[in-house]
Design a protein around this nucleic acid. Structure first.
Lengths: 260, 260
DNA sequence: GTCAATATACCGGTCTGACCACTTGACAGG
DNA sequence: CCTGTCAAGTGGTCAGACCGGTATATTGAC
């Protein structure tokens, strides 16, 4: 049962008190993942559930809304709350995971490696003239930024997100957006310096020119290959040639630390 | 301002009434994305904000919790609500997008095509013995389910999610989970029949055996190739040989229709 | 008997108003 | 100048109430 965080001594504060709705949400998610509530099953009514857990209806409601936002449950007005079909499949602990620190650089890069060639390939087939023009415009802006002596990191990100848009695939787009969003974090700051040298930047521009040309020519294979080559080069820069896809052991992440 | 969904005539019901908290969340997200509330800025107090928008505090709270769950804001107890540092990159309208109908089957499949070979490749390098054992156990369950004359769809999904887990890449895992979750929706019901014929199911089993063997042998290229071949075959079944990566025009999706 | 219209019980949606716990910052005392 | 205290403001939680929507049992007509 959720415990109200007591403050026996005002100044003794070990952990940040978990809000009621978080505790309830975790508890319900556990029940769902445990199979106590099967997919498609109907949860007890809000009033009943609240009483069972021992909290007020507003608090329970907040938890349900969090779970609904995460896509674990579905609330039907006037009917009831149902477990979404998610459970047998997604073993990913949405709630817990969404609260923790993100993946590391290498992990991000591996995902890029999977997604971006596909973006390039699809974009070659699906991109509209406007989208290609937008990519070219972005490329010009990258050049201008470099000429001005500033870091083109943001423009680079924009270029790749535009490319993902041009693929007309919403899933790839959302993954690419997320990857480049993560990449703007501080973790990459130091890594980035290695790439931001004149020679490397010039190669980046050449690659992007080649890519845009492939898109214009509707050359899917060429676009894909260009992206592959680019990622090969970047991987060398970032992670060195030894690389070797290290398989770290499961790595217990204690779930205690929180962002802030 | 949010409008209470009126029912002028009981039987005239055009759209499903949007719940208050959804309207409020959209509104606040729009304000954030518009820059009216800059990252790091503090939102007005709950009481004040509720009065400004013209809703009750509980409703406003529900909206804030939804936005917090999505990671757009951060609530500090006893202090206030703050806008999280959203990057300039992410153009993805989290809230609105997450509530809409998902992408179509072909779009989903294209994403699979990008993600799953990478999962197989990485898993060959990173999978632990337990994870490979779990995959084998799942494969056995698939066979048992087929022998029992039932559809192995859920087990198939589980197999691929387990594979994604074995890749030890949280991003690929979350994408794969999402893809297979979408796939359990009704949209695929009819499509699926084509694949669920004895001959096809047998090929699926053979592929999975081959894949697991590649993992055991730490043969990344082999695992990747097996997955590629499998996806080739499945693509034929689902979308026919003509395929040809049609570049549908932008396709205005009116965002009106809702699941259910 | 079958089927459609209706009545009703149940359920989620929303609101009011209140009290509690926490954070913060001003202020008085050392 | 530093420190401990206190008060104001903020989010957290609660209880209870009423509303409208949904599903189902009921009733009526055919």
């Amino acid at each position: 049962m959720p415990q109200r965080q007591r403050t026996e001594f005002p100044s003794l504060k070990v952990v940040r008190p978990k809000r009621m709705y978080e505790q309830i949400a975790e508890q319900i998610e556990a029940l769902i993942r445990n199979g106590d509530f099967a997919p498609g099953a109907r949860l007890p009514g809000e009033r009943e559930l609240a009483e069972t857990i021992g909290v007020s209806r507003p608090s329970l409601r907040e938890a349900l809304i969090a779970l609904e936002t995460l896509g674990l449950i579905e609330v039907r007005v006037g009917d009831g709350t149902y477990v979404r079909a998610a459970s047998p499949v997604s073993a990913a602990p949405t709630w817990i995971q969404s609260k923790d620190l993100g993946p590391g650089p290498l992990e991000q890069f591996r995902a890029r490696r999977a997604v971006e060639p596909a973006c390039a390939e699809l974009a070659a087939a699906a991109a509209t003239a406007q989208e290609i023009a937008a990519l070219e415009k972005c490329l010009e802006r990258i050049i201008a930024t470099i000429d001005a002596g500033r870091s083109p990191a943001a423009e680079h990100a924009r270029f790749h997100v535009l490319l993902a848009e041009a693929s007309h695939n919403s899933i790839l787009l959302s993954v690419a957006s997320e990857l480049w969003r993560l990449r703007s974090g501080e973790m990459w700051e130091t890594l980035r310096r290695r790439v931001e040298e004149p020679e490397s930047l010039a190669k980046g521009i050449a690659f992007r020119r080649r890519l845009v040309a492939s898109l214009r020519a509707r050359d899917a294979a060429g676009a894909c290959a260009a992206m592959q080559a680019h990622l090969d080069r970047v991987e060398q820069l970032y992670f060195g040639p030894e690389d070797a896809a290290r398989a770290k052991p499961p790595e217990r992440t204690p779930r205690s630390r929180r962002r802030r």
